[in-house]
Design a protein around this nucleic acid. Structure first.
Length: 909
RNA sequence: GGGCGGUUAGCUCAGUUGGUUAGAGCGCCACGUUGACAUCGUGGAGGUCACUAGUUCGAGUCUAGUACCGCCCACCA
């Protein structure tokens, strides 16, 4: 925006200022953290978005929250580092590129591993910076000079180092067990990556014929009939007397037509289903354990993409069928043979792949696991001792529960995109080891070596983010200066995936917490409280919001619209309403700025040069309110109550500065501009000028303070306006300016009380005018009678304010009035307001008004009297509470008296 | 099955250790363009704080239970 401060347009135009300002911040390196600076550090590492991601509202909320915190701490004088970057996101990214080449009619197997990975790299190089650029658009003050990617060579070295260390410490092992397998992504998943979802399914009761048993068959219940092709036993609980006679006999597995043992195992719950369960060791984790205990065979009867296949167990008619088609067909076959007893509806949880939603298939395979118990202990202790705090605190129980019941982590993925597992096997002597370098020959026998084909779980690299981004394992200057970090801001969804594991890695590899506070914000939802998602089509594109209403409006809604830990509810069908508060506020701020900047001379005297004690009441009031705003906003930010901080600043700017102070000070400013050229009575010009000059100081100070306080939430508009304040030096930036400090000397409780009386008087007059429908143009006469000396002084001091804000012609403060034709009001302290309305007044209406006030007061007084005559209350309540109630009663009685007198004098019945 | 959260104005939500007449934004009604702002101003209407019982001098706030909504965890197949 090139306009000078005297010719700003009446509407704030975010597009004209945002990009140039961001460029300016970058050019000034305002967001760059310095290793050599003497300031105490404050570090946030970004939750790295997927490298292929485009910004969505959840990330908008996440990043704006981080930006508020980092900007606040930067202004407070800390060496603030917000470290940005992206995650290679193994499965997700591989899926994206697989979809792209699918359009060319190819699969990754057509390309081969090397060419496919090259293809992914090309894609990442092309699109990988998209989301980072989008973060700039919403104003994120990241230190872009430190941007990291989890597949950077340096970062990959850290991943490899961690793997090898864990290997050396024997915390990594090869496990042969049933894991979660995604038949679409063709990879194994960790327990966390297989999301349970309640589903309405069916429970099939199937009869397995029994040879020489007490009965000719045994009925088992299953939700997955197709797995029966892999059954190698039937199990019952050892204490289940119903089946005692069956244990040790053989059942005939239908369709496959094989004999399988009936055995007893503790894992079987007698109450569920029939109490007899089919055992499929290769396709069910519990059955696998049973299989181990009873040394059963464990045939795998499905292909990796979940089609039925087995040389002897799958009959030709089922071979090659998808598992769900096979299920239907098997159910038919059982029906035909009279072996299907019944089908019951059954609600149970089914696990799905967290990346593609496919139903996960439990599958027996060999994978690499990390032993987690040794890692979890310090992480658990960190929470218990308070070294790491969760905000809101209630997530602590969830964290603790997970840590206490932690299970080993399957870290191998059958993918191509990611960190290849650095395990090597000699094809000669079968020696197997993990290596920091790529070996060409076996160190034992010199034979040829093969590397493990799998890659590591993406989270196995991101759990190192707080230190691998700073150069670990090297003891870099960055690492020494910026580790440990401070605040981690994220959604609870990745508490286990990422946060818990970062804490474990931090203690294990660095011996120190990665951060001291975990701030967990809510989820972005639509008005039906559904999570915003691409598939539901209920999302809001943050960039659309920026285009329509500006980045600050987006930020305002994301911060002021959501309290600590709660979800952010937005209406995707009504962006205008959703983001209007932020846009309106920005515009208000802009116009307050327009007015104030237009008033200020080039040289504004510093506040320090004023004798605060002698300032007009309104000035002392607003200066005091500014201190409160500073104190309260700062305290709220320190407690992560960002919405409270934002709203407190909003109220200061709009409800206090604009609605009252600016209006109160206008007469003085006008008087000065009138007096200056012509001159009135001797000396009046000088007085007016000095009054105005003081007002300039107060205005400049309050506005400057407001801009500083609001900058973390709405950085663009505040910077733009701040730049236009007089006295700005070349190159000065609000982004790195000092956070305001409250000054005790400016706090004036008495001024606040007295100005409140003035506000009450004005409101009372306005109320009467509205109620009697007095035209705004009608300049009525008003008499205000202060009850106390204090009140009278206040009204006298702000006489001009009352006249102006209540739109009145004549104001008397001596209690004398021309007639009784008018409307009355009684203020909280018993002061009286009389508005002369000769002609317009309707005595009946006035009576009704006053009596209804009286009735209300009487009701309140009655309730209060009940309280005060209650001996229990007087005896048990704290003395100050009782005193407060007594004081209240006195004030209400005064008000009542005044009202009653009025009614009497008006002759109301 | 276990654990956690929510239920306050038409809508979205505040209400921090129990203590003024329960608040805000948006929406609604009335009036109004006075040179900062109609993306505005002034005034107003609107709430038995989900329900029940309890603790207490006093409960939106604490306790127990009920109902509905949501989230997390869990090897009952």
């Amino acid at each position: 925006m090139t306009a000078t401060r005297f010719e700003l347009p009446p509407q704030y135009d975010p597009h004209a200022v945002e990009r140039p300002l961001y460029e300016r911040w970058l050019a000034a390196q305002a967001f760059t953290a310095h290793v050599a600076s003497p300031k105490p550090p404050y570090v946030i590492v970004i939750p790295p978005p997927n490298v292929t991601a485009v910004l969505h509202m959840g990330q908008g909320l996440n990043n704006v929250t981080q930006d508020v915190l980092i900007r606040f701490e930067r202004m407070r004088g800390r060496e603030a580092l917000w470290l940005p970057g992206t995650d290679h996101a193994g499965i997700a990214t591989q899926n994206v590129v697989e979809r792209i080449i699918a359009k060319e009619g190819k699969t990754r197997f057509d390309l081969g591993r090397e060419r496919f990975v090259e293809r992914v790299w090309a894609f990442v190089r092309e699109t990988g910076s998209t989301i980072l650029e989008q973060l700039k658009i919403i104003g994120a003050s990241c230190d872009w000079s430190r941007t990291r990617f989890t597949l950077d060579p340096a970062y990959s070295r850290a991943v490899r180092e961690v793997f090898v260390r864990l290997w050396e410490e024997e915390l990594i092992y090869r496990g042969h067990r049933v894991i979660h397998w995604c038949p679409r992504c063709l990879t194994s998943l960790s327990d966390e990556e297989a999301e349970a979802e309640e589903t309405d399914g069916k429970l099939y009761y199937i009869r397995y014929p029994v040879e020489d048993g007490p009965k000719p068959y045994l009925t088992v219940a299953t939700t997955r009939p197709e797995t029966m092709l892999g059954d190698t036993a039937v199990a019952v609980n050892p204490n289940d007397e119903r089946y005692a006679g069956f244990v040790g006999k053989l059942a005939r597995l239908p369709i496959v037509d094989l004999p399988i043992p009936i055995l007893a195992d503790q894992a079987v719950v007698p109450e569920f289903g029939t109490g007899a369960v089919k055992v499929t060791p290769a396709h069910d984790a519990t059955d696998f354990d049973i299989g181990l205990r009873h040394k059963l065979e464990m045939p795998i009867v499905m292909t990796e993409d979940a089609r039925m296949e087995h040389p002897t167990r799958v009959p030709p008619s089922l071979s090659g069928l998808d598992r769900f088609d096979a299920r239907a067909k098997i159910v038919d076959l059982l029906k035909q043979r009279g072996l299907l007893e019944k089908i019951e509806p059954h609600r149970h949880s089914v696990r799905h792949c967290y990346r593609c939603g496919t139903v996960v298939e439990p599958r027996l395979s060999d994978q690499w696991f990390v032993k987690m118990k040794p890692l979890a202990e310090p992480a658990l202790e960190a929470y218990r001792s308070g070294e790491i705090q969760l905000v809101p605190e209630r997530w602590g129980a969830t964290y603790q529960n997970w840590m206490e019941n932690i299970r080993d982590w399957n870290i191998s993925r059958q993918l191509w995109w990611g960190h290849r597992i650095p395990v090597f096997t000699c094809t000669g002597c079968e020696h197997r080891w993990a290596d920091r370098e790529d070996p060409t020959t076996c160190p034992k026998c010199g034979g040829p070596v093969e590397q493990d084909p799998d890659v590591l779980d993406t989270w196995f690299s991101s759990w190192l983010w707080p230190f691998a981004t700073l150069g670990w394992p090297d003891e870099t200057r960055d690492l020494k200066r910026f580790y440990p970090g401070h605040t981690l801001v994220t959604a609870p969804e990745i508490l286990f995936f990422w946060v818990a594991r970062m804490i474990m890695a931090g203690y294990y590899f660095r011996g120190a917490r990665p951060f001291s506070t975990v701030y967990l914000h809510g989820t972005v939802r639509d008005t039906q409280h559904r999570k915003m998602s691409k598939s539901l089509g209920n999302g809001i594109d943050p960039l659309d919001v920026v285009r329509l209403y500006g980045a600050d409006a987006l930020r305002w809604t994301a911060i002021a619209g959501v309290s600590l830990g709660s979800d952010l509810i937005l209406d995707p069908n009504d962006l205008a309403t959703t983001f209007a508060p932020g846009r309106n506020f920005a515009n208000k701020l802009w116009n307050i700025g327009r007015f104030i900047l237009g008033q200020l001379p080039e040289q504004v005297p510093a506040l320090e040069s004023l004798d605060v004690e002698r300032l007009p009441l309104a000035d002392r009031w607003i200066l005091s309110r500014a201190q409160r705003a500073i104190q309260e906003a700062t305290a709220s930010l320190e407690q992560f109550r960002l919405d409270e901080a934002a709203k407190r600043c909003f109220d200061f700017v709009w409800k206090e500065l604009a609605d009252w102070y600016v209006e109160a000070v206008k007469p003085r400013l006008e008087a000065a501009s009138r007096a200056a050229p012509a001159g009135g009575p001797p000396g009046s010009a000088a007085v007016a000028a000095s009054d105005a000059s003081a007002a300039h100081s107060v205005l400049a100070y309050c506005f400057d303070t407001a801009l500083r306080l609001l900058h973390p939430v709405v950085p663009f508009i505040t910077e733009e306006l701040w730049q236009k304040l007089p006295g700005r030096e070349e190159g000065e930036l609000l982004a790195v300016a000092a956070w305001p400090e409250a000054r005790e000397a400016l706090i004036a409780a008495d001024a606040e009380t007295r100005f409140t009386m003035v506000q009450d008087a004005i409101s009372a007059i306005r109320n009467i005018r509205a109620e009697y429908r007095v035209s705004p143009k009608a300049q009525v006469g008003v008499v205000v009678t202060g009850r106390t000396t204090e009140a009278r002084r206040a009204f006298e001091g702000e006489r001009e304010t009352i006249i102006r804000l209540a739109q009145i012609k004549a104001l008397r403060l001596d209690g004398r009035r021309a007639s009784d034709a008018g409307a009355h009001a009684v203020l909280a302290d018993g002061s009286e307001v009389f508005v002369a309305l000769a002609g317009a007044i309707d005595v009946q209406q006035e009576c009704r008004r006053l009596s209804s006030d009286l009735t209300r007061l009487d009701q309140q007084l009655a309730a209060l009297a009940g309280k005060l005559t209650n001996q229990q209350f007087v005896a048990r309540a704290p003395a100050e509470v009782v005193a407060k109630e007594r004081e209240k009663e006195r004030a209400w009685r005064d008000q009542r008296q005044v009202l009653a007198d009025k009614l009497k004098s008006l002759g109301c019945s």
